[in-house]
Simulated scan of single mutants.
Amino acid sequence: MAAGPARLTDLAWPDLTARRPLVLLPLGSFEQHGPHLPLDTDTAVAGAVAERAAARLGAEVDVLVAPAQPYGASGEHEGFPGTVSIGHDALRLLVTETGRSLLRWAGRLLVVNGHGGNVVSLADAVTGLRGESRDAAWWPCLPPGPAANTDAHAGRTETSLMLRLRPSAVRGERAAAGPTDPVHLLMDRLVAESVRGVSPSGVLGDPAGAGASEGERLLDRMADRLAADIRAWRVSARGRLGLPDRQPVTARTGDGR
């Protein structure tokens, strides 16, 4: 195995005939992230965490990183232009059929999820795959730190991550704070009014103080945790790799999207 992450896109089919690799599938979203962050923020973070974890595992585990899936269930953000949501039913089917096909030749599948709104459908799909005796799991990119509940979307954490990953895409001059109340206190309004009704800018949190060095630390800590969870490979009843299920609090719209 190479020292860096091994990417599925770099291989031809004969390269896989004698292997049963673990495949990491980054899953993100294509949705608004305030006026200052790019629409593919969740996808970029999931891909970076997957590649860093794969590089850490090196020769310990035969691991490949698949191309990221950029579309997820983002109905709560559809009040903003640029958002593309495939909805929960389509996401559940997408993960199910991707897993069935991929696990014909791969040994294990781990979906590295970068968007909290995907979790319910993702867990359903992975649980279904496991019920078919396929070794699949999912893992959430949850940045460490107690501020996550008041920094839920396009705040300091995600701004720091993108300043590290793609600084040219961060429009710092547009960054502004949105509501910083704990998400659970906003949940009734988020469900009833969607994100646009709660935060006209789309930000839930405050980007102030974000920096690339903080983003680097957050990426490293997530990648370290992911690599450790892969080594242990303990999967919960809902298909979650690692710690017991901790479903992120997310807004769900009434149309099932």
Score class of each variant (00 low, 15 high):
196 R>W: 02
215 G>N: 08
176 A>H: 07
10 D>I: 05
100 R>D: 13
87 G>R: 04
4 G>Q: 08
179 P>H: 00
94 L>K: 12
63 V>M: 09
88 H>L: 12
72 G>D: 04
16 L>A: 09
245 D>E: 11
35 P>C: 06
83 T>G: 00
99 G>W: 00
155 G>Y: 07
22 L>Q: 05
153 H>N: 02
135 D>I: 03
237 A>E: 15
6 A>K: 10
158 E>L: 06
233 W>E: 07
136 A>Y: 01
13 W>P: 13
128 G>T: 11
186 L>S: 10
109 L>M: 13
216 E>I: 04
61 V>S: 12
175 A>E: 09
114 G>S: 09
56 R>S: 13
217 R>T: 11
135 D>A: 12
162 M>G: 01
84 V>S: 01
129 L>W: 09
116 G>E: 00
124 D>A: 15
145 G>S: 08
257 R>E: 07
137 A>S: 02
74 S>Y: 01
192 A>N: 11
115 H>G: 01
6 A>C: 11
135 D>P: 03
243 L>Q: 13
149 N>H: 14
246 R>G: 13
102 L>V: 14
57 L>C: 10
191 V>A: 14
127 T>C: 03
211 G>R: 10
39 L>W: 04
207 P>Q: 08
93 L>W: 12
145 G>D: 09
143 P>N: 07
207 P>C: 05
1 M>W: 14
41 T>V: 01
18 A>G: 14
94 L>A: 13
20 R>E: 11
207 P>L: 03
252 R>D: 05
230 I>Y: 02
228 A>M: 06
246 R>V: 14
190 L>F: 06
31 E>I: 00
255 D>R: 11
69 Q>R: 13
121 S>Y: 02
206 D>Y: 06
113 N>M: 05
153 H>F: 08
99 G>A: 05
242 G>F: 05
150 T>M: 12
221 R>Q: 15
135 D>F: 03
208 A>T: 15
31 E>R: 00
39 L>E: 02
177 A>E: 09
73 A>I: 05
5 P>N: 06
211 G>N: 08
171 R>M: 11
89 D>P: 07
250 T>L: 02
137 A>N: 01
100 R>Y: 10
245 D>L: 11
35 P>K: 00
198 V>N: 04
112 V>E: 01
117 G>V: 04
130 R>W: 06
56 R>V: 07
165 L>K: 09
133 S>M: 13
